[in-house]
Write a protein that binds this DNA or RNA. Structure first.
Lengths: 334, 334
DNA sequence: AATGACAGGGTAAACGTTTACCCAACCATG
DNA sequence: CATGGTTGGGTAAACGTTTACCCTGTCATT
């Protein structure tokens, strides 16, 4: 068994209270006693038991996070930023994978509740189906949604302005002369899907181009990008540009176009969304809308801490403006 | 405050002991009492407090994991598999990022110790520098290394046979007629780097090709792949094949070659290692050595549980044979 | 009918901390 | 010299469970 504070106290010849006070610095202790305690702790290799501390203090110094799918390239980036930021304040991250399934998501959330995490960060699987679990848990502890949010429920959210991001992409390709612009994105069962779709439509209306190209909505995966590209290729003509709902889709589209000898950006322009690590490494490197993970993570934890400090703070939805990263999938090297 | 088992017991008109027995199923309880307890728990929305339970039971049902860098594409895949497998047995994952820094890694390991995790899964940052922290912690709890292992220390490990993997790659390109084969991999400060380098050399010896091409060792990142490719391109002739230490490097090499109009696989063959998600999406799709994450995760947890059950089980190093996935970076479509 | 096994209930200790509360000593102030 | 504040120490309760231990009643066996 590990060494306890009681053993430290005994060796130092003080009460456990004094030992605890020295070790946590919660109250002044005379210098000689403090030295004896520290020495004893050092010699014995004492490490405090975080479980016992958590039980007594009523907080675990642990934050729970549920993501739809860890291996999906965008999520690890945000998990990483969140984890680093938690480290700065000495907190730990309990990470759960929802396997894209709202039912599993619910169970994972409940497991985190059981673990008495001090707060919950969640990227909801579905705008609709994640509703009840989220509503239930947010009465018990601070909850912040990142990237996506559920419908019809007021809970803190921080993400990127998907609509604005899409506008950037659409206006960029339009400024390069594209008039026939197709959308390949994901179905509207996530807020990200909805926002990006809505942003696309608004931008198209604003620049006044006819919407005579299909809006293909599937999943946020490369496979769907491939299929959608095949659909476009099977038509009798190609759009000038394909604006994609995320980078993975765009990469799928790129792949299929390449396979069918359609040249990007000469024959068609392509944009992505997220700026995942691989976007810059694609062929051609992908013009995309960058999500600032560090900022997202920072705001997210700020929100969480604000709510923890005062559960009655008004609910906030923080939409950060994304930026466009122009690469060769739209402007090719001369 | 949350509902406690005491309140459940009161409402059901039984002792907390009985309530606990019903709720955990640890002993037989008469059906009517059991029903009353379950009903009371249901009505009150009782959830057990995992912290209190952990303190009493001496185990947290939580496993700690430290990875060098969450956003590095290979690691999330393995984290995901581990997390899923833990879910199956009702355990949770406390995930830490070492930020590629052995000192931070040490701190994270200690934080996990403090949290009383039941076991530790670690992908060590460095074969040398991670040694002491690992040695220290492995006396306190079950520890299993995945993917990489530290030098001079006998602790359980499960990973892929990097040497064999490299042989597969080398022999594959050799069988396609390549004789001038270059290696672009990472420095020897990780076991993965060492194994893959050694495997390359052994395979070259075995097939009897002269080793007259450089072995370029840098980091496991695409940037390094780019730089290394530039070095190769600046020579007066090109190798027949470039065998890379991982997929990211290979993707970097591909990118640089493409930029300099070297055609893959016509001018030069390229192989990667890991089979990350984007290997198949690269241009051309990357021939690579596949790491079976699911198996790695399964073995890893098996090992961890075995050591937890009996701390004196002999140390095991399990090397799983990887398989070669042939794609167009070596065999181009006709 | 005595005995023993067994089933099912409760009481209370224990897990390792932190901290409310109490107390003694000391010091400054009037 | 009495008073009151401050400083630094200890005692013990509390956090929410689980479980060792004890007790009582029932039933089968002799």
């Amino acid at each position: 068994m590990a060494v306890t504070i009681r053993e430290v106290a005994e060796r130092a010849g003080v009460s456990v209270a004094t030992a605890s006070r020295v070790l946590t610095g919660s109250r002044n202790v005379s210098v000689d006693l403090a030295e004896r305690v520290n020495e004893a702790a050092r010699v014995l290799g004492y490490r405090h038991n975080a479980v016992a501390r958590a039980l007594r203090r009523g907080r675990t110094n642990t934050i729970g996070m549920v993501v739809p799918e860890i291996s999906n390239p965008f999520f690890p980036a945000i998990v990483e930023s969140v984890e680093r930021r938690l480290q700065m304040t000495g907190r730990d991250l309990l990470l759960c994978d929802a396997q894209q399934d709202p039912e599993i998501e619910r169970k994972r959330i409940m497991a985190l509740v059981d673990h008495q995490v001090d707060g919950l960060i969640i990227i909801p699987v579905s705008a609709k189906a994640s509703h009840t679990a989220l509503a239930e848990v947010s009465t018990r502890m601070p909850v912040v949604q990142v990237d996506r949010f559920v419908e019809e429920y007021a809970a803190d959210w921080v993400g990127v302005d998907g609509s604005l991001g899409m506008s950037l992409a659409v206006e960029h390709v339009a400024s390069l002369g594209a008039t026939g612009i197709a959308l390949v994105s994901a179905t509207l069962d996530t807020s990200a899907g909805q926002q990006r779709h809505a942003g696309f439509e608004r931008a198209m209306d604003r620049i006044g181009h006819p919407r005579d190209w299909p809006q293909l909505l599937g999943t946020f995966r490369a496979e769907w990008g491939r299929s959608a590209a095949a659909i476009l290729l099977d038509g009798d003509r190609l759009p000038d540009a394909v604006v994609c709902g995320n980078d993975e889709i765009a990469i799928g589209v790129l792949g299929e176009f390449r396979r069918r000898h359609v040249h990007v950006p000469d024959d068609v322009l392509i944009t992505g969304f997220d700026d995942i690590r691989f976007a810059a490494l694609a062929d051609p490197p992908l013009t995309t809308v960058r999500q600032p993970h560090e900022q997202l993570a920072a705001e997210c934890i700020r929100l969480l801490d604000a709510r923890a400090a005062d559960p009655d703070t008004p609910v906030q939805r923080i939409a950060i403006a994304p930026t466009l990263v122009v690469r060769e999938s739209t402007v090719g090297t001369p």
